[in-house]
């Protein structure tokens, strides 16, 4: 299976159809395993049982950034090769990115409540997540603002790439701003300080979440291809009903 074969939307549809059940099953197995491991994980000596929120918070946060990466790669495909499948991939990914960013925000805030005593703290990580969420919503608004799919795809590709360049700058600025105003954050997610009893469930959950995204993304891409096919068929139908207008 070469890349060229995959690039054909019809071939892509059959491949997606064949892959989806397997991917869904694998995702379910991984998530169930991950949840079991997470339930059995010991309590943190400082944070108690609240550390269990980490097993859904960190994978969501990881995916929220990973999805922007996927969209940036698709943006390259759109701008350089003008490939319709790249447009489809970018468009299908955006709502999932927004959803995972939203989950990272909500779980982070629920984790923060016992730690900080407030639901929202202008903590560096959460603030960057909030800005990322705003950018996802802006991107979705941009997708929905234009009717012609390929025109919208090119505009969104440019915004995605500009965002990809700017996100590290924003992250750096927010970190700097945060150290200016208050001490370091409470959430110690990731890093070498994490014990093995937390690391393994976290890894399983992260892989499970990623596979879940891949499955959903593939299914959403399939829907989007069908939607475009319907659109072109409707245009064809409209032109057939009015023979004078070619």
């Amino acid at each position: 299976m070469t890349l060229l074969n995959l690039a054909n939307p019809t071939r892509f549809l059959t491949l997606a159809q064949r892959l989806l059940p397997w991917l869904a099953a694998l995702t379910a197995i991984l998530l169930v395993t991950g949840l079991t491991l997470a339930a059995m994980a010991p309590d943190d000596y400082q944070q108690g049982a609240t550390v269990k929120i980490m097993f859904v918070h960190v994978p969501s946060a990881w995916l929220s950034m990973f999805v922007w990466g996927v969209m940036s790669l698709s943006a390259f495909g759109t701008l350089v090769w003008r490939h319709p499948l790249a447009d489809v991939a970018a468009k299908a990914a955006a709502p999932f990115g927004a959803a995972f960013t939203f989950l990272a925000l909500v779980t982070g805030s629920l984790w923060g409540r016992p730690m900080w005593g407030t639901y929202w703290e202008w903590d560096a990580r959460l603030t960057s997540m909030l800005i990322l969420f705003l950018m996802y919503l802006g991107l979705i608004a941009l997708w929905r603002a234009v009717e012609d799919p390929s025109r919208a795809a090119r505009a969104c590709a440019i915004f995605t790439l500009v965002g990809a360049i700017n996100l590290p700058i924003i992250k750096f600025s927010v970190d700097w701003w945060n150290t200016l105003h208050q001490p370091a954050s409470v959430i110690r997610s990731g890093g070498p300080t994490l014990d093995k009893s937390f690391l393994i469930p976290l890894l399983v959950m992260a892989i499970g979440f990623s596979l879940m995204f891949v499955t959903l993304h593939l299914a959403a891409m399939r829907n989007e291809i069908l939607r475009r096919r319907i659109r072109s068929l409707q245009l064809l139908q409209a032109s057939q009903q009015q023979p004078g207008v070619a």
Binding site: L134, G138, A141, A145, R151, A155, N166
Partner: peptide, 27 residues
Amino acid sequence: ALAVTLHRGGLLMAVLVLPLSIPILIF
């Protein structure tokens, strides 16, 4: 530039640009 090619101005442009200008505001 995005707004003019899409014939949509105003709020959409502000929504897109404001997050990008956060670092400038901070520093």
